[in-house]
C-alpha cells in the first residue's frame, strides 16, 4: 500500500517535471534571453539607457506611441461592439447559409496585413470604390485610405473575425434560460444586455479585446502598404531600423511598445475586475 502511494507520488512528480521542462526551456530560450538581449542592446547606443527616456519624451516618438495606442483602443472598442453584436446574433439564429456566412466572415483572418492594406486602397484609395461613388453622387472625391480612417478600417477588417469567433463560442455556452428568466421578471432588452449578456460574455469580451488590442498595437503590414501620413509605432521602429540604422532606439521602442501594451491590458483587466488573463 505504502509502496504504491510512494510510486504514484513519484510518478506524478516526474510527470510534472517532464511537462514543465519544455515550458521552462521555451520561456528561457525564446523570451528571457532575447528580451534581456534587447534590453541591453537598446542601452548600447549613443544615448545609453536614456534611449528609453527618449522614446517617451521625443515629440516624434511620443506622437507615434500615442496615436498607436489611440488607434488600437478605438479599433478594439469598435471591434468589440460590432463583433459582439454580430457574434451574439449569429450564435442565436440559424438560417440557410449560416455556415457559409460565418466562413466568409472569418476568411480575412488568413490575410496578411499587406492584403488588408491593399483592400483598403481598393475601397477608399485614389481610384477606390467609395471615391468613385462619392464623385458620381457629386460629393467630390473622397479618399481616406491613407489617413487614420483608412488604418482604422484595415485594422477593423482583420480584428473582427477573431472577436466574432470568440464571442460566438461564448454566446453558445451562455444558458438561454438566463435571458428568459430576466424577461419573465420584466427586464427590457437594454436591461438584459446590461445585466445578463454583457456580464455573461465578459470573460470572452476581455480576452477577445486583449487579443485585438495587442494585435493592433503590433500590426505592421497594413500600415506599411498604406504608407500613411501618421506613423504607427511599428512603422516608426521599422524606419529607425532601416532608414536611420538607429538600432538602439528601435530596440528601446520595441520594448516600450510591449510594456505599454501590457500595461493597458493590465489596466483594462483591473477596471473590469475579471480573472481572465490578458493573454497577449
Amino acid at each position: 500500500m505504502n509502496v504504491g502511494t510512494w510510486r504514484m507520488g513519484r510518478g506524478t512528480n516526474t510527470l510534472a517535471f517532464v511537462l514543465a521542462a519544455p515550458a521552462v526551456v521555451v520561456f528561457g530560450a525564446f523570451w528571457l534571453l532575447p528580451m534581456a538581449r534587447l534590453a541591453v542592446f537598446a542601452a548600447g547606443g549613443q544615448l545609453g539607457w536614456a534611449a528609453y527616456l527618449a522614446v517617451v519624451t521625443h515629440p516624434r516618438y511620443l506622437e507615434s506611441l500615442i496615436s498607436t495606442v489611440v488607434l488600437s483602443a478605438a479599433v478594439t472598442a469598435a471591434t468589440l461592439a460590432i463583433g459582439g453584436i454580430a457574434g451574439v446574433f449569429l450564435s442565436r439564429h440559424r438560417f440557410p447559409g449560416h455556415g457559409l456566412l460565418v466562413g466568409m466572415l472569418t476568411l480575412p483572418m488568413a490575410f496578411p496585413g499587406v492584403v488588408v492594406g491593399f483592400l483598403v486602397i481598393l475601397l477608399a484609395g485614389r481610384q477606390g470604390l467609395i471615391g468613385l461613388l462619392a464623385q458620381a453622387l457629386g460629393a467630390g472625391k473622397l479618399v481616406f485610405a491613407y489617413s487614420m480612417t483608412g488604418l482604422f478600417l484595415g485594422y477593423l477588417y482583420f480584428s473582427i473575425p477573431r472577436v466574432l469567433l470568440t464571442i460566438m463560442a461564448a454566446a453558445e455556452k451562455l444558458d438561454p434560460a438566463l435571458e428568459e428568466a430576466a424577461r419573465s421578471l420584466g427586464a427590457s432588452p437594454r436591461q438584459i444586455l446590461q445585466d445578463v449578456l454583457i456580464p455573461g460574455l465578459k470573460p470572452a469580451l476581455i480576452s477577445a479585446g486583449a487579443l485585438c488590442f495587442a494585435t493592433s498595437m503590433g500590426a505592421f503590414g497594413t500600415a506599411f502598404t498604406l504608407a500613411t501620413r501618421i506613423s504607427v509605432l511599428p512603422m516608426t521602429i521599422y524606419t529607425e531600423f532601416t532608414l536611420f540604422a538607429d538600432m538602439a532606439i528601435a530596440a528601446a521602442m520595441s520594448l516600450v511598445l510591449g510594456a505599454v501594451t501590457w500595461l493597458v491590458l493590465a489596466l483594462a483587466r483591473n477596471a473590469t475586475g475579471a480573472g481572465v488573463a490578458a493573454a497577449a
Binding site: A177, A181, G186, D195, K202
Partner: peptide, 18 residues
C-alpha cells in the same frame, strides 16, 4: 413574456451569476 406577469423556475436554475 415580459407583459404576462409570470414567474418561471428552470431546471438549470438560471440564476444570474454576476
Amino acid at each position: 413574456i415580459e407583459r404576462r406577469q409570470v414567474g418561471m423556475v428552470f431546471q438549470s436554475y438560471a440564476l444570474f451569476p454576476n
